[in-house]
Design a binder for these strands. Structure first.
Lengths: 206, 206
DNA sequence: GAAACTATTGGACGAAAGGGCAATGGAGCT
DNA sequence: AGCTCCATTGCCCTTTCGTCCAATAGTTTC
């Protein structure tokens, strides 16, 4: 389960600048990959790997903002750092409101760039951990049968087995059985843990 | 318990523009208050009321960014909308990274301004509700004695009364008693609810 | 059609939870 | 000392939980 190394995507149509960036980042020990356009990035869309995107704002074809929006829709929210020469306030504000980690202007100081990268990678790691956790939780609940799910809801609502059985029109004995089954499926050892799981489930996106 | 109406704070050293803004907002049904400087705002610091701050960036004395930072430190995080004539990218990015709702440039379109206000007030309401909820939770837990708190931890950890009693060196009967007392104090009716409370408590800031 | 399988149920037993009642013992006050 | 107040405890009883074994009915598979 070793997490793959982070990969820095550099999207910029200025080839000389792009290769300079790639060299700089590579020298700093980062693994990198360059793209001449938004389309190139989306086509050569990398596997699901930790990392972030260093993105020019103004390029031929779809803009950096378009790519940022596409990433969000795609459910592959790699953190984005904008790095652009033609900066205007409106574009920078739109980028930040859309969730960009930072918005830097060329020429950028080495120090500034690395700080932003650091924050972007940290955010990616955090998001990734949160998504993995959410996925585990969702999968566990998806493994429950509808009945088990109903029993779960009853338990979390503080009902005792008899009340749950009554509400569902089944025998208390059956509730006990399904209770044991759902607790096994969720890996819970107590009613308190079921409550914790319910709370976490409730606060998941979607 | 009726929530007071939101109050819009307008901080701008340009008096004619400030009064124009106040008049515009007042005509739209908002309650408003104007300040000529960051210092004025901090001095005439209003009571804890819902609302937001419409803030100029460049003013004599402390800047809008300074005020934004002060609000955050003060634990009175009213949402901030910047509205400024001398906008540069670096300042806008700093403002947005510091959590500004929006960063508008003069002259601003009426529509744009009202949309931003809408979002700012919505954010304030949400933050306020979350803070109130957190406060209630904290207060409830603060009312527990250390013993009750220990019993709570044991329950949430899935231990049965006997184990808790053993670990604390007290009788099981006492654990039962404190269990009932802490559940009454927390308003919980089941172990599942205790689990939910524990989960929420764990995810509070601080 | 028979066998295998799943969901549901009944009965029963030990363990645990929840709670009433009274006794104990220490802290603090008069 | 005498007293009250309160946390702690023991005893006992009822309800609920967690499981075991076995039986029944409906469904799927061969």
């Amino acid at each position: 389960m070793s997490t793959p190394l982070p990969l820095i995507h550099v999207v910029d149509d200025d080839e000389s600048l792009r290769t300079a960036l790639l060299r700089l980042l590579g020298a700093a020990g980062f693994e990198t990959r360059g793209y001449a356009s938004t389309g190139d990035f989306l086509l050569q869309s990398p596997p699901d790997r930790p990392g972030c995107v260093l993105l020019d704002m103004r390029m031929p074809g779809p803009s950096g903002l378009d790519l940022q929006a596409a990433l969000r829709r795609h459910g592959n929210p790699l953190p984005v750092i904008f790095l652009t020469g033609y900066a205007d306030v409106a574009a920078s504000v739109r980028a930040m409101k859309a969730g960009a980690v930072d918005f830097l202007t060329k020429p950028v100081e080495r120090e500034t760039l690395f700080e932003a990268l650091q924050r972007a990678l940290a955010r990616d790691a955090a998001q990734r951990a949160a998504r993995a956790e959410a996925e585990r939780l969702r999968a566990a609940f998806a493994a429950l049968t509808p009945r088990e799910r109903a029993v779960f809801d009853g338990i979390v609502a503080g009902q005792i087995n008899k009340q749950i059985a009554d509400a569902m029109g089944i025998a208390e004995r059956t509730v006990k059985l399904q209770r044991a089954q759902l607790m096994a499926k969720l890996g819970a050892n107590s009613a308190a843990e079921l409550g914790r799981l319910a709370e976490r489930l409730q606060h998941l996106p979607d």
